[in-house]
Design a protein around this nucleic acid. Structure first.
Lengths: 120, 120
DNA sequence: TGAACATATGAGCAATTGCTCATATGTTCA
DNA sequence: TGAACATATGAGCAATTGCTCATATGTTCA
């Protein structure tokens, strides 16, 4: 059952078992890790980040976002779905038009943290 | 020169020009956007996030990280380079061994913000 | 200096991603 | 109800990505 003895790296040498064990306990569980990376993956595309920036100013309909960014309505719609899946944006329908807005202000906090890092 | 009249989306209707103009001014410049999405893209992979979590506990050598995560030394090395490119980790050499550690505590802040969002 | 070892790196491949195109769905209004 | 319109969605494709394999680079020590 215990497989910590199986030190295969680097021809059985070098491994600092204590450090590895400590790190292993710090690793997040599978589900948390999945959710977390999925969330950040969403921030890793310029079209999506542009959409989020646009929504900082006010809610917008799909069509307006498409015009603003110079991409297809379809592309915007696909990306909005991705943003919605991770609950970064929400939508409301008004007649034929669907307005999208930021789900909460985590978006801004996360982007600001990122900005702070890159602008050092 | 002015091309705001060119409302091509949705058969020339629907566009809320004021909203679009306001949003356009809020968009980040090209370089900032590039740096920002590149940074978040790095957080969008589970191997890289696992490495960061491991480094939360202490500095570690490449070999230890490889054993911890059960991936190749090569894979770890490639990912560490990516993490280094965006200045999330730094390294120091001690003889044949290279120890990696977190570059600063933006890493933790960003991940914590992400966690807070996904665990709502 | 050369053998041993830790790490870095390039090539190549399967999997993923973001887009466009075509079309489906949902809503309004005459 | 059906035409008009805003949005959503599936298929398909080019580009990107993360891995492994092979090997190069850097360091120590006898």
């Amino acid at each position: 059952m215990e497989d910590r003895y199986n030190v295969e790296c680097c021809d059985l040498v070098c491994a600092h078992e204590d450090v590895i064990d400590r790190a292993r306990r710090a690793l997040p569980d599978e589900d948390t890790l999945y959710d977390l990376t999925e969330l950040f993956r969403i921030f890793g595309d310029s079209t999506r980040v542009r959409i989020l920036y646009a929504l900082f100013t006010s809610e917008m309909c799909v069509c307006d976002i498409a015009e603003l960014l110079g991409v297809t309505q379809s592309a915007v719609s696909h990306q909005l779905r991705a943003l919605k899946n991770v609950r970064l944006v929400k939508s409301r329908r008004d007649g034929k038009t669907v307005y999208y807005s930021l789900a909460d202000d985590h978006v801004k906090t996360i982007i600001d943290q990122g900005l702070e890092h890159v602008s050092e």
